[in-house]
Lab assay of single mutants.
Amino acid sequence: NPITQSQFVPLGEVLCCAISDMNTAQIVVTQESLLERLMKHYPGIAIPSEDILYTTLGTLIKERKIYHTGEGYFIVTP
Rank of each mutant, 00 (worst) to 15 (best):
N23Q: 03
G58L: 11
R64G: 14
A25K: 15
I61E: 11
I75T: 09
L11G: 02
L53W: 04
Q5P: 10
Q26H: 07
V9D: 15
V28G: 06
T55W: 06
E50A: 11
I27W: 00
T55S: 13
Q7P: 11
V14Y: 06
T55M: 15
E63W: 04
C17S: 15
I66L: 06
E50C: 11
G58K: 11
I66H: 00
E71S: 09
S6E: 13
I75A: 11
T56R: 03
P43M: 04
G12R: 15
E13W: 04
G44Q: 14
D21Y: 06
Y54K: 15
T24M: 15
T4W: 08
S49F: 04
M22S: 01
Q5S: 11
L35Y: 15
V28K: 11
P43E: 07
S6G: 09
G72Y: 01
I19Y: 04
L53R: 02
H68D: 08
Y54V: 15
V28P: 14
Q26A: 08
E13K: 08
D51T: 08
Y42D: 09
S33W: 00
G70A: 10
M39F: 05
I61G: 02
K40A: 12
S33R: 08
D21V: 03
T30W: 00
H68G: 04
V14T: 07
P43S: 11
T59D: 07
P48T: 03
V76Q: 06
H41N: 10
A25Q: 12
G12T: 13
L53S: 01
V76D: 09
Y67H: 07
I19L: 01
M22K: 01
T59A: 15
Q31M: 10
D51K: 10
G70I: 06
D51F: 04
C17A: 14
P48Y: 06
H68I: 04
T55D: 14
P2S: 15
I47V: 14
D51E: 10
T30V: 00
F74T: 07
L57K: 00
T69Y: 03
T55K: 11
V76S: 15
P48A: 04
D21E: 09
E32Q: 13
Y54L: 14
I66Y: 01
N1A: 03
V28C: 09
L38V: 12
Q26E: 11
P78A: 04
D21L: 02
Q5A: 14
T77Y: 08
A46R: 10
S49W: 06
I3K: 15
T59C: 10
I75K: 11
R64V: 03
L35I: 15
G72T: 03
H41M: 09
F74E: 13
T69W: 02
V14E: 06
I47T: 08
A18Q: 03
I52K: 08
E63P: 00
L35R: 13
Y42G: 05
I66Q: 04
S33F: 00
I75P: 05
H68Y: 08
Q7L: 10
A18Y: 07
H41R: 08
D21K: 05
V29K: 00
R37F: 12
M22H: 01
S6F: 08
I3R: 08
R64Q: 08
L15N: 03
L35S: 08
Y67N: 05
I27D: 04
Q26V: 02
R64Y: 02
G58V: 14
G12A: 15
Q26F: 03
G72I: 02
E32N: 10
G70V: 12
D51Y: 07
T4G: 05
V9H: 15
G70E: 13
R64K: 14
I61F: 02
S49E: 07
F8D: 11
E71M: 14
T56I: 06
I52T: 15
V29Q: 00
Q7N: 10
N23G: 02
E71P: 00
T4A: 09
K65E: 02
S20F: 02
G70D: 11
Y54R: 15
Y73C: 02
L38C: 03
Y73Q: 03
A46T: 09
G72S: 09
L11S: 04
H41P: 02
E32S: 09
E32R: 11
E36T: 09
I66E: 01
N23R: 02
T59F: 09
L38R: 02
F74S: 10
I66C: 02
M39A: 10
L35A: 07
L11K: 01
N23L: 00
Y73K: 01
I75C: 14
T56S: 08
I19H: 00
T69K: 09
Y54F: 13
Q31L: 11
I61Y: 01
Q31H: 06
K65P: 01
N1I: 06
V28I: 12
Q7C: 14
M22V: 00
N1V: 05
V76K: 11
L35V: 11
L38A: 01
L11P: 02
K62G: 07
L11M: 04
I52N: 04
E13P: 06
N23A: 01
I47W: 05
C17H: 10
T59I: 13
K40L: 09
H41W: 08
Q31N: 11
G44E: 11
L38D: 00
Y54W: 06
N1S: 15
P78W: 02
A25C: 06
S33A: 08
Q7T: 12
I47D: 05
I45A: 07
E71W: 04
L15D: 01
G72C: 02
C17G: 15
Y54D: 13
Q26C: 08
T30M: 01
T59K: 13
V29P: 01
T69E: 08
P2T: 13
L57E: 00
L34F: 00
Q7Y: 15
I52Q: 12
H68R: 11
I75E: 04
G44S: 12
L15Q: 03
C16W: 07
E50P: 15
M22E: 00
G12K: 09
E71T: 07
V29L: 01
I27Y: 05
G44M: 07
P2W: 08
L15I: 15
T59P: 01
T30F: 00
M22Q: 02
G70T: 15
R64E: 13
G58P: 02
Y67I: 15
T56V: 14
P48M: 03
I66N: 02
V28R: 13
L15G: 00
Q5F: 07
Y42R: 10
M22R: 00
A18P: 01
L38I: 13
S33K: 12
T24D: 13
H68P: 03
I75D: 04
L53G: 00
A25G: 05
I66R: 00
T30G: 03
M39R: 13
C16F: 09
G44I: 04
E36V: 06
Q5D: 12
T30A: 00
H41G: 07
H41I: 06
K40M: 12
L57G: 02
A18D: 02
M22F: 00
I75R: 12
A25V: 03
N1T: 03
Q26N: 09
R37G: 03
I3D: 15
V29S: 03
I3W: 02
A18G: 02
K65W: 03
A18V: 13
T77F: 05
N1K: 05
E50D: 08
I75V: 12
E63H: 05
I3G: 12
V14H: 10
M22T: 01
F74W: 10
P2Y: 15
I61R: 04
V28D: 06
G44V: 04
I75G: 07
T24Y: 06
A25S: 13
V76T: 08
L35P: 02
I27R: 04
H41A: 09
Q31R: 13
G58E: 09
R64N: 11
A18C: 15
L15T: 03
P43V: 08
V76L: 11
Q7K: 11
Q7S: 10
T55P: 03
T30E: 02
E32Y: 04
I19S: 01
E71K: 11
P78C: 05
F74I: 04
E71R: 09
N1M: 10
L11Q: 00
D51I: 03
C17N: 15
G44T: 10
T4E: 06
E71N: 13
A46M: 09
P43C: 07
M22I: 02
V9F: 09
F8Y: 07
